[in-house]
Write a protein that binds this DNA or RNA. Structure first.
Length: 487
DNA sequence: GACAAGGAGATCA
DNA sequence: TGATCTCCTTGTC
């Protein structure tokens, strides 16, 4: 690995590495204060910036000179020596009165073995020409003038930083600056760095767009914009606290965890494997219908997805859109999450504890076959109990009330006049006909004396269990499933 | 009167 | 033993 260019102004160093290239360029000169380069998951920082809605993300500044490298403007008489190489108009200069706020934070690719993870580490540039990287001490001192240097050939800069009272040879300074610019221009042209074509990472997009976990944890959602994430300046924090890496990693981690839970919950509800490759044709149909319903998307004929999981996985997004013009993208994106899930650890947990083939549905819940047959009259199956193959049909008396209510809600063409969704995405539903719902419940449970008073008492028991709750604006006969029971 | 909320004991798998 | 049923009281609309 050879350092090919180092920029003092950006505190970034480009190394020519066997398999890695710096994919994050300098912070755009137009970036406002407080707008910082954003790290991402170890998977791919650049992909994340693109997937966050950026159709034309900022190009890495590898083939054109940075606009902030230009002759220094005239300076006030008491300017610090180090400030002379800063473009005060295009980039914030570290304030002598504060270490925060104006400290540029940029992507930095430290040499291995300091960065075995092979992705940019974010550092801040501190006063006195020192680089500060959590867990990493740079072996390369900066030039005392603060200019960009190639440490491979300019390691003569080992002297302490001179104070501004010391004598400065302006000719040496200008000469150094000239060398710097030539070096910069050369390094922008000569490196033959192949930038991997980013691909949209739908898993992360979906995870980041889902803010339910942030709401539950009382976190403030981070606004995602084109190619960048604006972070609030930390107020009064230390330098390390101002780094966005831990924060964004935490959000990403929680988002991915949320996706894991969603997948697990859907597996439980549908009784299918978390691995789409193992899905049968009926599993595929069940998953498609479940996803369409979950996202309030228009239904499509299940014949369009009459295929097993392996065939489904091989479909392109265009092929999804051909089969479901209004829902294809969502189905494709959801399948991406599931495809990613099969590589994750929780899959092993599933296979260890729950063998899904054949997958028994949770007691009372509609199985995959059930969901694929929307014409089933749940009122007529109240006497059918466990069936062969390990699956429990929807007529089992061993069923929880909340499951039964969801079963009714899943058949709006049959029970829509008795119970219906008001806000499917938030799990809010309304009992339109309390007598009928209670009668259905009593029929299912073989409790002829069941009435709505008793049923509602059972529903209220769910409040303490966190299964259901009253809506924020209390309405009669309106209840809300708590997450994840609303899935 | 219908419904909400909740206490308390009984019942069932 | 947990989930639900059953009965009850109190309060609100």
């Amino acid at each position: 690995m050879v350092l090919i260019w180092g920029c003092r102004q950006c505190a970034i160093e480009f190394y020519q590495m066997p398999q890695t290239v710096p994919r994050s360029g300098c912070s755009p000169p137009s970036a406002s204060q407080g707008e910082r380069a954003v790290p991402t998951s170890p998977a791919d920082i650049h992909h994340l910036l693109r997937l966050l809605g950026a159709e034309s993300p900022p190009e890495p500044m590898l083939h054109s000179p940075p606009t902030h490298i230009k002759p220094p403007p005239p300076y006030p008489e008491d300017n610090n020596y180090l400030e002379r190489l800063y473009d005060l108009e295009s980039y914030p200069t570290p304030s002598p009165s504060s270490d925060e706020g104006s400290i540029p934070t940029v992507a930095f690719q430290p040499p291995s073995p300091y960065n075995s993870l092979d992705y940019p580490v974010f550092i801040k540039e501190e006063p006195h020409n020192r680089l500060s990287v959590p867990g990493f001490a740079s072996p390369y001192p900066l030039s005392p003038s603060g200019s960009c240097v190639s440490y491979g050939s300019h390691n003569q800069y080992l002297s302490p930083v001179p104070h501004h009272e010391e004598y400065i040879d302006i000719e040496d300074l200008l000469k150094e600056n000239q060398i710097l610019q030539e070096s910069v221009q050369h390094s922008y042209i000569t490196p033959k760095i192949e930038i991997e074509e980013p691909r949209d990472h739908i898993l992360l997009r979906s995870a980041l767009e889902d803010t339910t976990f942030q709401k539950r944890l009382n976190l403030r959602p981070i606004p995602l914009e084109l190619g960048s994430v604006k972070m609030e300046e930390s107020s009064g924090g230390t330098g390390e606290e101002s780094l966005v890496t831990p924060a964004i990693d935490r959000v990403l981690s929680m988002a991915i965890e949320q996706s894991k839970r969603d997948v697990d919950n859907t597996c439980t509800v549908l009784g299918i494997s978390p691995d789409p490759m193992q899905w049968s044709t009926s599993d595929v149909k069940a998953w498609v219908m479940f996803t369409l319903q979950h996202f309030n998307l228009p239904m499509v004929p299940t014949e369009y997805f009459a295929m097993d999981g392996a065939a489904l996985v091989s479909l392109t997004e265009d092929e999804f859109n051909q089969r479901a013009p209004q829902a294809g993208s969502t189905l494709y994106a959801q399948l991406e999450i599931w495809k990613a899930a099969r590589h994750e650890s929780w899959r092993s947990q599933w296979t260890e504890h729950e063998q899904p083939s054949p997958a028994p549905a949770p007691p009372g819940l509609p199985s995959a076959d059930d969901l694929s047959d929307a014409e089933e009259d749940t009122e007529s199956v109240n006497t059918s109990a466990s069936q062969g193959g390990g699956k429990v049909k929807s007529g089992s008396t061993h069923i929880h009330l909340w499951q039964f209510l969801k079963e009714l809600l899943a058949s709006p063409h049959i029970h829509g006049s008795a119970i219906r969704w008001l806000d499917r995405s938030n799990g809010i539903f309304k009992i339109e006909d309390s007598v009928r719902v209670a009668r259905l419940w009593g029929k299912r449970k073989n409790r002829p004396a069941m009435n709505y008073d008793k049923l509602s008492r059972s529903i209220r028991q769910y409040y303490k269990k966190g299964i259901m709750k009253k809506t924020e604006r209390s309405q009669r006969l309106v209840y809300q499933f708590c997450h994840p029971y609303c899935l």
